[in-house]
């Protein structure tokens, strides 16, 4: 009886422990691969991501008040600042912040939000991949 109880408790604790881990933890390369697969699906003639195109996309305004660099600054390895609240934003470049682009849900959430703010639409997989290709080239 006692053993049964312990086994049940252990099972509950194990499941609880697992669910406390982030839902998806992946490397930056895996994130890039996932975006690449989306890009191929989105556009059959997709070839490659371009860091140069990503940098220009990152630093340019797209019809709205803000660009990516308005908050993340022109140096994505530096501390950013929220344009409205002035709250610090941790660096975006993986070289300066190892947590970046390792959580699939977080990546999806922030691309959705920030593309809406900067472009007033969702970003294409090509645009997301170009930006990530640029960000991984940024050194500390």
């Amino acid at each position: 009886m006692l053993r049964k109880f312990h086994l049940a408790t252990l099972a509950i604790l194990a499941v609880g422990g697992l669910s406390a881990l982030p839902a998806w933890s992946q490397t930056v390369n895996e994130t890039m691969a996932a975006i690449k697969s989306d890009a191929k699906q989105d556009n059959p003639s997709f070839t490659e991501f371009s860091a140069a195109r990503g940098e220009s996309f990152f630093k340019t305004k797209h019809g709205s008040e803000w660009s990516c660099s308005t908050c993340h600054t022109d140096n994505p390895a530096a501390l950013g600042k929220h344009a409205k609240t002035s709250k610090d934003i941790q660096p975006l470049a993986p070289a300066a912040n190892a947590e970046r682009f390792t959580d699939e849900a977080k990546v999806a959430k922030w691309f959705k939000r920030n593309c809406k703010d900067v472009l007033d639409r969702v970003c294409t997989p090509q645009e997301k991949g170009d930006v990530l290709a640029y960000l991984v080239t940024v050194r500390k």
Partner: peptide, 12 residues
């Protein structure tokens, strides 16, 4: 939240 004081702050 999708129009949260001028920013998209939408959640799942």
């Amino acid at each position: 939240l999708d129009k949260h004081f001028g920013s998209d702050a939408s959640l799942t």
